[in-house]
Amino acid sequence: MGNEPANELRVSLLVGLPLAAALVAVPTFVSDVFWLGLGITVLMWAALATAWNISGGLAGGLSLGHAAYFGVGAYTATLLFLRFGISPYFGLLAGAVLAGALGAAIGAITLRLRGPFFVLATLAFGIVVHIAAVNWRDLTRGAAGLLLPFGGGARNMLFAGVAPYWYLGLGLLALTLGVTLAIRRSPLGYYLVALREDEDAARALGVKVVRCKVAASAISAALTACAGAFYATYIQYIDPSSTTQFEISVQIALIAIVGGIGTTFGPALGALVVVPLGEILRASLGGGPALMLYGLMLIVIVLAAPNGVIGLLQRLLSMMRSGARRRATTRRSRGHA
């Protein structure tokens, strides 16, 4: 099968290394701020969807509250810098630790919840964090948002140009994909798959349910917070509507689903499809109709292709393979005749 972890590692090395080299070279060829900016946005959403996939896909808990972790990452890095002058490189780590702890707590308390109950609990958690971000004005300045000073320097992760953020984004995506690959090859990865397929059977076989679910939730949350800190330093302005809002949670999950949840590269592929498509639709049709199509796309994808783009590609590949095999056998049988 195409999604065997060992096989995946081979494929990722074969395809990944030349691809990575090409990606690193992009800013030397693309200097247009619009296109490079679009690329950075794709990288960020790819990282977010990949991070979501660790709890949403590998562990099977469909979270609709990941904007909370994104917000925690963005606000922690920003506030540490604004209040104490701590460089966002460290702020990013602090945000990841904080979000990881939150993720572990949420993982622990939603442990027994299945199906829609889990979804609703994560949704409520996300909304609690959003309400806090809007109303805790002493800390977050509420809807007015927080502005990071322009030109804070490379030391503070605040670059004047766009290109450095391309590399940071690339590093972020590499980190999330690396962690995903590592998990899938580790015992944790196998335990998570077992839990997702049949929790009771896995428990009976001695899988440490609590530890696995909490770990997946914490790792996913910490990586999501890293993307939040990245977003804050890239845009250099954050407010609740761009970080903790419910729509952000939906978008993260949507991208992962369009790409193919539970696979390693699907969610990143989803960002490559959804983000530019969203930009094109918005530019040509305007916000309302673009989002109408968005909703329609979500319905069609989950009804017709619940395994996402990756699933479609795999089906296409196996069709081509079986087609080739059939051609080969007919040729051989003709030869015998």
């Binding site: 939906v250 916000g287 309302g288 109709p289 673009a290 989002l291 109408m292 968005y294 909703g295 329609l296 796309m297 979500l298 319905i299 989950v302």
Partner: peptide
């Protein structure tokens, strides 16, 4: 998806 569609 239906919710997003109808709202917009």
């Amino acid at each position: 998806g239906l919710s997003i569609f109808l709202q917009n």
